[in-house]
Amino acid sequence: MPAGISVHVGLNKVDPARYEGWDGALNACENDARDMAALAGAAGFSDTVLLTPDGTVDQVTGALREAAGSLGPGDILLFTYSGHGGQVPDTTGDDDEADSLDETLVLYDRQFLDDEVNREFRAFADGVRIVALLDCCHSGTAIEMPGAATPETGVRLMPPFRQQEIYARDQGFFEDLQRSLAKDSPNGETSQATALLISGCQDNQFSLDGDANGAFTGALLEVWDSGAFRGGYRSFHRAIQSRLPATQSPNLYTTGAPPPTFLRQRPFTV
């Protein structure tokens, strides 16, 4: 029988000591992680839930690596993240980012590059189904457009001025990390794991926070309807999209080459 492992990360704030005094306070990210873990548990997944202070780089990578060591062909990983999104310049010159910017998940202790997420996904055996649900800004096919108007409150966006300030402080670290990740890619080339992503918004939009859940996660839970939903991933995405305003339009894209049978499966099928 196939096995399912899920990892759920929800950060209502970050460590201000690591972000130049900014704590990134949000309302609903821990609720999102708990609710997604409950959904996954009901669908037959075992789960790891990492909330705020536990949402560190070491703990997130540790949970993903433990899952990679356990899952084989035909099994499934579900990875969900609710928190802030950010960006740093991509200095490797390998053309894997059209806008020369790497997306980041703003974890408790530092920003986690999209290339780091991809490295962890590549560690899974061929044939493992990977589903990622990211409820944060900068979560479309590319990162948010520089210079876009930023709402005052209620968005899961690391403020651009804070991104610039922290990047200036940590530029050497990120440049070394990006070079290391590029070298680790097979044949020295950029590669991607075979995975399916439903993100909280498009490139030039914001993912909204909320009182009980983020707007994206709340819509997802409504569509799922405690397991009553019966379509595939594409219809699942469209139904979530229909419940959100045009200012936040969730995106669906794949990396690698997920088989059509995977995309047609009912979401969260172990």
Rank of each mutant, 00 (worst) to 15 (best):
V7I: 08
G10L: 11
R18Y: 00
R34F: 02
A38K: 11
G41P: 02
T48Q: 05
V57K: 09
G62Y: 06
L71E: 05
G72W: 06
L78Y: 08
L78C: 00
T80Y: 04
T80S: 07
G83F: 07
H84C: 13
G85Y: 05
G93T: 08
D95R: 15
D96N: 05
L101V: 11
D102N: 03
F112G: 14
L113T: 15
D114R: 03
A123F: 05
A123T: 11
F124D: 01
D126S: 13
A132S: 09
H138A: 07
T141C: 08
I143L: 00
E144T: 02
P146S: 14
G147I: 01
A148F: 08
A148V: 14
A149Y: 03
T150P: 03
R156L: 12
F161N: 15
Q171G: 02
Q171N: 13
D176T: 07
L181Q: 09
D184L: 09
P186S: 02
N187H: 14
G188N: 04
E189R: 13
T194P: 07
Q205A: 01
D209E: 10
D209G: 12
G214H: 10
G218V: 01
G218A: 06
D225E: 04
S226A: 05
A228H: 13
Y233I: 01
Y233K: 08
R234G: 12
S242I: 07
L244R: 04
L244C: 07
Q248I: 11
Y253E: 05
Y253I: 03
G256F: 05
